Amino acid sequence: MKIAISAAETSGDLIGAKLVSALKAQNSDIQIEGMAGERMLEAGCVQLWDKNLANVMGFSEVLKKLPALLRLQKVIIHYFSTSKPDVFIGVDAPDFNFLIERKLKRQGIKTVHFISPSVWAWRKNRIKKIKKSTDLVLCLFPFEVDFYQQHAQRAVFVGHPLAESLHPRQDYQSTKTVLLMPGSRESEVKRLLPELLAAVVIIKKQDSQLNFHIALANDELLEWAKVLADKVNVPISIGDAHQQATRSDLVLVASGTAALELALLGVPMVVVYKLSAMSYWIAKRLVTIAYVSLPNIIAGEYLVPELIQDDANPDNIAQQAIAILQSDTTALIQAFNNIHQQLNLNASEESARIIMDFIHE
């Protein structure tokens, strides 16, 4: 049995790796190949293309890489059109994967999209594209299935794979540590890290006993980040965000999957984000929901502070951070525990089972 897969982001690589392991556990003879990162490679996926070839975010950023992305899509489509896998699984990255899925679906190849795009939040007209591209959508959040049922698109809630491996910390004792997680993409790190470090200077004036640490997703910007961090004496580590987070009183984090990961670990946070001016101008007109961070969206209430674009400045970041550090977070942690319970459904095993059944239909 041949399974094709495409993950084009760091978060997709994490979730894709769990799915690959679950599929291999059901049938060790399955051949799984495609676009993957290091985690998927370690799980047993054959890496035909590195995920970093397509790892880009933001409208203007995508435009700059568009010719290369289109060439890559064409290569992937040609390869799987020839090899004819039993199913193609697009892991997240909808704008990249849907085109591939649509072309392969037209050739009779079954397609699954693992992780529903936020079509319920913005660009709702994408449902037309989804219906043309994907036979089955695997949803990480229960409210997503309701949206798809309204549009006669086959979809199943499977829970979130990260809830399998990330669990709320127990009996936490303060370490007087604040962690900085500025994201995984070059564009977001370069926009956010200077703001976060400027906030560190302000926070230190309020509490000189606090320690600060930066967790980078990879070493691509290590030298650049080190120049900034050394000026305020903040150490940096690579690829150990989860471990660092569990030892921190608070995390200043880029909006995205990382915010959900912190909620699953039960760690208070301030969510920050900045896009290019053009990307933000476009996004602001397309987003139709009240919140941007996943903990708030899932809970349906303002659990964690969100500082977006111009609001993501050092003064605001410091103010929100100090407020959390000085508050009782018992109710917040309980809300995070509720999110974990809601999403912890052995998503990887369930997804693998559903995909195998779907292949044999």
Rank of each mutant, 00 (worst) to 15 (best):
S248L: 09
D92Y: 02
K84E: 10
L250Y: 05
A299F: 05
V156F: 13
F141P: 01
T82Y: 09
K131Y: 03
E33L: 14
K190H: 09
H340R: 03
Q309M: 07
K64F: 04
V189Y: 00
N337C: 14
I100C: 05
Y273A: 06
E306V: 00
A199W: 06
L252E: 05
V91Q: 01
A8F: 08
N125C: 00
N346P: 01
N125P: 03
Y280F: 11
S60M: 01
S21Q: 15
V251I: 08
E361A: 13
K176E: 12
L286Y: 07
V87S: 08
I109G: 00
N316G: 13
E186I: 14
L221S: 04
Q244F: 02
N337R: 13
H160S: 14
H151A: 02
E42L: 14
L14N: 11
Y79E: 07
I202A: 06
P67M: 12
S11N: 08
E188Y: 01
L307C: 01
K284V: 02
N211E: 14
K74Y: 12
A215V: 00
K132Q: 15
D92G: 09
H160I: 05
D95S: 12
A299E: 05
S83F: 05
I308V: 15
A352F: 08
S237N: 13
G44H: 09
G44N: 09
V270L: 06
Q209G: 07
